[in-house]
Each structure stands twice: as C-alpha cells, then as structure tokens.
Simulated scan of single mutants.
Amino acid sequence: MSTFSAAGSDKSEETVTKADSSTTIDIVVAQPPFHDVEETDLILRSSDQIHFYVSKAIMSFASPVFADMASLPEGDKLNIQERIDHRPCVPVLDHSEELYQLLSWVDPRGVPSLELDDMKKALRLADKYGMNNTVCRIGVVLEALDNLMKKDCITVYAIAVQCGFTSLIEKAAHHSLNIAVQDIPNVPEFTNITGTAVQNFYTYRLACNRAAQTFISSGAWTQDQYLRAFSVSIPTCCAAEGRATRFGTMHLQLMRWFAVYIHDIQEAVAERPVPATVRDPASHRDTLVTMAACNKCRNHIPTFLSFIEFVATGIENAIANIKISSTYM
C-alpha cells in the first residue's frame, strides 16, 4: 500500500503500487485539500496527470455524469479499471487548474476563489458535467460581488447570458452604463454568445441614452424655483444677455452659463446615462466657478446644487423601467 505525504500548496510526487500489479509508479498529487486520502474513495486524474482525491458520493450528488458512472457495475465502467491504492482512478480531459477550481466549489473541503478568471474555469466544467446547482451557486455569488461587477461588467454580462442568469444579465447591463460606449472593451466572451445577445446589449444602452437625453431636452426640470434662478429675468448681472434655448414646446432665455451647462450635461449623459454622470464634480466645476465670480449668481449656488440632484434623480427614474431583452437566439 502506498504512503501519501503531500503537504503545503505544492504538488508532490508519490510512489504508489497499482492494486492489480506489482508495478511501482510515481504520481503527482493535487494541491490541498485534494491531496488527502482520508474519507475519499475516488481519484480524478487531470489531463496533465495530477491526481485529485475526492468522494464518490459527493461527485455523484453534484453531477449526473459522475452519478451514472458510479451506478454502473464495476466491470462495465469505462476508463476506471485502473486502481491506485485500492481506489478507482478516473482520467478526465480537463486541466488540473480548471479541475481544482471546479472541485473547490463542489467539495466541502474546498475554498472557492472569487477571482473572475477562476470562476469562469469552474463554470465551464460545471456546465460540462451538468452540475446545475453548482452553476447556480456560482451565479449567486458572482451577483453579490459588486466590486467585481463594476470592474468587469461586460465580461459578466456575456457569462450571464451563457449561463442564463437573468437577474445578473440585468445588473451587468445596468453597470455597463457607467462606461462610455466608445470605451466598452471587446471582451473575448462576446464570441461565446449569439449576435442577438450582443445586439440586445447595445439596444439597451441606446434606449437608456435616449431616455436620459429626453428627460433633459423635454424641459421636465423647468420648475419655477429653477427658472427664477437661471433665467435672464433676474436683475442684470454677469451673463444677463442670456441664451435662447428650446425645451420641448418651450422657448426659454437662460443665463448663458446655465445654458452651456445644460448643453454639456446632455452630451455627457449621451455617453454615460447614469446619475453619477450628473453628480460627478467635474461635470459642474466650471459652472460653479463662473457663478462664484458673480455677486448675484453666487447667491443661486445652493439652488444649482439642488438642481443637479433633481436632474440626477430624474435620469435614474428615466432609465429605471428600461429592461434588456431576454431573447438570445
């Protein structure tokens, strides 16, 4: 019988004896915790010849593929005639790096990695082996990782489409609005989804862009408190000449600096139709500087700051009811 002494995180070579012969062979044991022979009765050998010690019951419960394999009479099983240390050894076509990530989600001894690349590896094999519960579990965790979502929302969108994570599709698409359309990365995962799914993504973005712009251009914000503060009807000051501006059916004579701000914010939300675009200090810094330089306009700075929040909330409401299509074929 062989002796196993793998320790730490390094792969270790072990000398073992096949149960059906006297041949001594060297094997490489997987990283912990899949090196431990206690409470395990099955070995999975990866394509790069790494041996993972797992529980047949756990693998059968997680995957119909392994369940079918376990239910066959011993003599009928394919590819598991080889035995190492009295355990069946099943060769699989998966690389040890991917297999390790999958087993980390399946086996209670494992600690799953929350790195996106590692989760992608686990998802690919979970789908391959019909591990639907594992796929769903990864999806739930992925949706909860806000920082990862903000950083990699385009990749997450493609993954969500592949796996059918409906709520994650919505969330990833919504996060993508924080990226200007010309800055959207060309992620390789887009090649794994249908053209319809890609079109749905850009159609959703276009609808949100139009909704945000329409809110501003329609003049829905033209409440009395703002018109009193930003129209040229106030006593003469630095920008009394104003600028004629049309909003829907209204023609307004606005303070020049305010008309410039409205024009600039319309262009900004055409690229990033989210409240954060309006709340970004860089979007109104120049306007505040101009207002502060005028003895009369500076009195309206509190009203202008209130206006910014009003517009941000309006944009949020305008895009809230826009949903991305769930048709992907």
Results as ranks from 00 to 15, higher is better:
Ile262Gly: 02
Pro281Trp: 08
Tyr204Gln: 00
Thr40Phe: 08
Met59Trp: 02
Asp48Gln: 08
Ile43Gln: 09
Gly8Ile: 05
Phe201Gly: 05
Thr166Ala: 14
Met59His: 00
Cys297Trp: 06
Ile50Arg: 04
Phe165Trp: 13
Ser2Gln: 08
Trp257Asp: 01
Val278Glu: 01
Ser306His: 11
Trp221Phe: 12
Met131Gln: 03
Ser176Asp: 05
Asn200Glu: 04
Leu116Trp: 00
Val111Asp: 09
Asn133Cys: 05
Ile84Asp: 00
Leu102Gln: 00
Ala292Met: 11
Ile58Gln: 04
Thr277Leu: 07
Ala70Gly: 06
Pro88Phe: 12
Glu170Leu: 09
Val65Phe: 10
Ser113Lys: 03
Asn321Gln: 13
Gly164Tyr: 07
Leu123Arg: 02
Gln162Trp: 07
Glu316Asp: 15
Lys296Cys: 09
Val29Ile: 14
His284Thr: 01
Ala318Phe: 07
Ala211Met: 07
Ile58Ser: 00
Ala144Val: 00
Ile179Arg: 04
Arg243Phe: 08
Glu13Phe: 10
Val28Leu: 11
Leu44Val: 02
Pro33Thr: 02
Cys297Gln: 02
Ser96Trp: 02
Val54Trp: 00
Val278Gly: 03
Ile315Phe: 06
Phe34Tyr: 11
Ala220Glu: 11
Thr313Lys: 14
Val140Thr: 14
Ala239Asn: 07
Met149His: 01
Phe304Ala: 02
Val28Ala: 11
Cys294Leu: 04
Ser60Gly: 14
Val311His: 05
Phe165Asp: 02
Phe201Cys: 09
Pro33Val: 08
Leu148Met: 12
Val269Glu: 01
Val232His: 00
Ser167Asn: 15
Ser217Leu: 13
Phe66Leu: 10
Ile301Trp: 07
Trp105Leu: 07
Arg109Ser: 08
Phe307Leu: 06
Arg243Ser: 14
Tyr261Gln: 01
Glu98Tyr: 10
Ser283Asp: 05
Val140Leu: 10
Thr290His: 10
Ala293Arg: 10
Asp224Tyr: 03
Ala67Gln: 14
Met1Gln: 09
Phe61Thr: 11
Ala240Arg: 08
Glu39Pro: 02
Leu114Lys: 13
Ile50Asp: 04
Cys163His: 15
Ser2Pro: 15
Gln81Arg: 15
Met1Leu: 12
Met131Ile: 13
Ala173Gln: 05
Ile301Val: 12
Lys323Gln: 15
Glu98Ile: 06
Ala207Leu: 15
Ser71Asn: 14
Gly195Ile: 14
Pro185Tyr: 12
Ala57Cys: 08
Ala282Arg: 12
Glu14Thr: 12
Asn79Ala: 13
Ile216Arg: 04
Ser104Pro: 01
Met149Leu: 14
Glu170Ile: 12
Ala320Cys: 13
Val187Arg: 11
Arg109Pro: 00
Phe310Val: 01
Glu309Gly: 01
Asn192Thr: 14
Asp76Phe: 11
Tyr328Pro: 01
Val37Cys: 02
Ser283Tyr: 08
Ala62Met: 08
Asp224Gln: 10
Thr236Ile: 06
Tyr53Ala: 09
Gly248Ala: 07
Leu252Gly: 06
Asp68Gln: 13
Ser231Asn: 05
Asp118Gly: 08
Arg87Ile: 07
Thr327Asn: 15
Pro73Ile: 12
Leu78Tyr: 10
Glu189Tyr: 00
Ile216Ala: 01
Ile322Asp: 11
Pro235Thr: 10
Leu114Ser: 12
Arg228Gly: 03
Ala197Ile: 10
Asp280Thr: 04
